[in-house]
C-alpha cells in the first residue's frame, strides 16, 4: 500500500488467512498414477520457474559482465568492476543512507503509533471500535498512488516539499492502516490475564502495555517494522514526487535518475546497483520469515 506503497505492489493484507505453510503429508502408498502426476507437476513447475528466473538471472549475470547488454548472456569474463564503479558516495552510499533514514524513520514512527492505537482497540470494548476498524481496513485498501498529484499540491501549499520529515509523515500515514490492523491482531494474541496481574500490582494501562504487552509481542513488532521498512524501501513514486533534491533522494529515485539520465545506459552498473539496492530487502524478508514462522505475506507490493 503504498503509497503505494510499494505500497505495494502489495500490499499484503492481514485479513487474509496467513496460515503457516501446512502441507498435507504425502500419501504413503505410491502408485504409478501418483508418480505420473508428480512428473507432470514438476515439468510444468520447472517451465514456470524458468520464465520467472530469466529476468532475475539477467540482473545477476549483467552485474558481473564487463560488457553487459539488455539481453541475457553468459559473460565472457567475470568482473566486479560494475560494483566498484557504482560504489561511490554519490551513486550508492548517500542514496542508500537516505533510504535507510526514510524507511527507518517511517517504520519506527508507524510501529510506535500503531502500537499505541492497537492497544485500546484490542483491550477496550468501545462502541466505535468497529467503525474505526472498518475505516482503517477501508483506508488500507485505497490505491494511494492515485492521490500523489493532490499530495504534491498539498505539500507545496504546506511548504513541505523536499522535506524529509514531511515525506516520513506521509509515508507513515499511508502505512498506518495496515500496521494498526496487523498490530491489533498481535495485541489480541497476548493473553489479558498477564496484564490483569500487572493491574493488580498497581500498574496503569500504559505501564502494562510498556512492561508486559510490548515485550511479549516483540516478534509482532519486528514483523510490522520490517513490513513497513521494506515497503518504504521499495517505494519509488512517493519520494520521486515529494523529494526533488538529489541529496535527499533515496536509492529508488537515484536508480531511476541513473537509468533515465545516462543516455547510453551502462547496463552492468545498473544491474550491480539494483542488486546492492535489493539485497537489504531480501535479507529482511528472510529474517521476517524466521521471526514469524509462517508470515509469508510481507513484502513491498504497492508501487
Amino acid at each position: 500500500m503504498s503509497a503505494t506503497v510499494p505500497v505495494a505492489t502489495a500490499a499484503p493484507q492481514p485479513p487474509v488467512p496467513v496460515a503457516a505453510k501446512r502441507r498435507r503429508p504425502p500419501l504413503q502408498m505410491a502408485s504409478p498414477k501418483k508418480r505420473g502426476t508428480a512428473v507432470a507437476a514438476s515439468a510444468s513447475l520447472v517451465l514456470v520457474g524458468v520464465v520467472f528466473f530469466v529476468p532475475l538471472a539477467w540482473l545477476l549475470l549483467a552485474a558481473v559482465d564487463p560488457s553487459a547488454t539488455v539481453a541475457i548472456g553468459i559473460p565472457d569474463a567475470l568482473t566486479l568492476d560494475n560494483f566498484t564503479t557504482v560504489l561511490t558516495p554519490d551513486l550508492t552510499f548517500r542514496p542508500l543512507l537516505n533510504s535507510v533514514l526514510l524507511s527507518g524513520g517511517t517504520a519506527l514512527l508507524t510501529v510506535a503509533v500503531a502500537t499505541l492505537a492497537a492497544y485500546p482497540l484490542s483491550r477496550y470494548q468501545m462502541r466505535w471500535n468497529k467503525s474505526f476498524l472498518y475505516t482503517v481496513l477501508f483506508a488500507s485498501c485505497l490505491p494511494i498512488t492515485a492521490v500523489m498529484v493532490p499530495v504534491y499540491a498539498l505539500f507545496v501549499s504546506l511548504g513541505l516539499l523536499d522535506n524529509v520529515p514531511g515525506a516520513i509523515f506521509f509515508l507513515a500515514a499511508t502505512s498506518l492502516p495496515m500496521a494498526i490492523w496487523m498490530m491489533k491482531n498481535f495485541v489480541d494474541s497476548v493473553p489479558i490475564s498477564l496484564e490483569e496481574a500487572a493491574w493488580v500490582d498497581g500498574a496503569s494501562a500504559m505501564q502494562a502495555l510498556a512492561r508486559v504487552v510490548v515485550p511479549l509481542m516483540r516478534p509482532g513488532l519486528a514483523v510490522v517494522f520490517i513490513f513497513v521498512f521494506t515497503q518504504t524501501w521499495g517505494n519509488f513514486f512517493v519520494p520521486f514526487v515529494l523529494l526533488l533534491d538529489p541529496d535527499k533522494q533515496p536509492a529508488a529515485v537515484s536508480i531511476y535518475n541513473f537509468f533515465g539520465v545516462n543516455g547510453a545506459v551502462a547496463y552492468g552498473q545498473l544491474a550491480a546497483f539494483s542488486l546492492i539496492y535489493t539485497l537489504p530487502v531480501l535479507a529482511l524478508y528472510l529474517l521476517v520469515q524466521r521471526v514469524s514462522g509462517g508470515f509469508a505475506l510481507a513484502g513491498g507490493v504497492k508501487g
Partner: peptide, 14 residues
C-alpha cells in the same frame, strides 16, 4: 516470491 519481494523499480528494470 523473489520477483515479488524485490523493489518494484528493480523489477521494472529487469
Amino acid at each position: 516470491v523473489g520477483a515479488w519481494v524485490m523493489p518494484e523499480i528493480v523489477a521494472a528494470f529487469a
